[in-house]
């Protein structure tokens, strides 16, 4: 079992880890034309980032609302002040939901998009067409995506934090569970700015995982449309697992 998982020559984890490392070396290898690269970067920021704004807003507002209501229902004891709901909602959103949740969603949306785009380019020989010109195709195609994600994901996470906390406010107010003044007092009470930094650091790491892992699966697709679909599933699954793994590691590292 262990042997199958880790040591299998063609499909084991070690095989892919090695190949992924070499892939990253190619991605960060000799860059071609800077002007072209800059245009690519802008295009990717728009395609991967701005296009994800909608889903991030929707998730965040609901998430904030649910977290707030659940906390409110759970502390129905008279001697605990209502503002603690605000404190708890804020901390869960800042620490966990806005980074990990949002990035897991992005792994699904952006990850499958990257893997299927690059996978299609592979099976239709567009990547060969770039390589034959002596252009570093991995760098040309993947680096703009990685940098765009690293740039845009922290911004999305910041937006998610604001919108999430606002969602909590709306839910608390509309249901009458948490009075506005208490909520607003709560979200300021004992606020630690480091929580935001912590989440932003996580989001940069997650952005790198999503973009590079998904690009890896796409880049080494072999076959046709079916394999492109498979690559895109693998991209979502693998990057989600690595996000969860690194979430654990970074929490230990940054908060312990």
């Amino acid at each position: 079992m262990i042997k199958l998982l880790f040591l299998n020559k063609k499909s084991g984890m070690l095989y892919h880890l090695g190949k992924y490392t070499l892939f990253l070396k190619k991605v960060f290898g000799r860059p071609d034309k800077h002007s072209v690269f800059f245009n690519q970067l802008i295009r990717e920021i728009d395609k991967l980032g701005i296009n994800s704004l909608g889903i991030v807003l929707v998730i965040s507002i609901f998430m904030g609302a649910v977290v707030t209501l659940q906390t409110a229902y759970n502390i129905e004891m008279p001697f605990i002040p209502k503002y603690t709901v605000g404190v708890a909602a804020r901390d869960s959103i800042l620490l966990e939901f806005s980074s990990t949740m949002v990035c897991l969603i992005l792994a699904g949306k952006v990850g499958s998009n990257i893997a299927s785009e690059i996978g299609t380019m592979r099976v239709t020989e567009q990547i060969d067409a770039i390589d034959i010109m002596g252009i570093n195709s991995a760098g040309f195609l993947v680096l703009p995506k990685v940098l765009a994600m690293i740039f845009i994901t922290p911004l999305l996470v910041l937006i998610s934090m604001g919108v999430g906390i606002f969602g909590g406010y709306l839910a608390g107010t509309l249901t009458g569970e948490v009075p506005p003044a208490e909520y607003i007092y709560g979200i300021q009470y004992g606020f630690r700015p480091f929580y935001i930094i912590y989440s932003l650091i996580k989001s940069v790491v997650f952005a790198f995982i999503i973009s590079s892992v998904s690009a890896y699966w796409g880049y080494y697709t072999f076959g046709g449309a079916l394999e492109v679909g498979r690559a895109s599933t693998k991209a979502v699954v693998t990057s989600s697992i690595f996000i969860l793994l690194f979430n654990l590691l970074l929490t230990q590292l940054l908060l312990a």
Partner: peptide, 14 residues
């Protein structure tokens, strides 16, 4: 490579 041109089976246009 700059002296090579290649036409791929499915055209491989971007």
């Amino acid at each position: 490579r700059q002296d090579m041109g290649m036409l791929f089976q499915g055209s491989a246009l971007f």
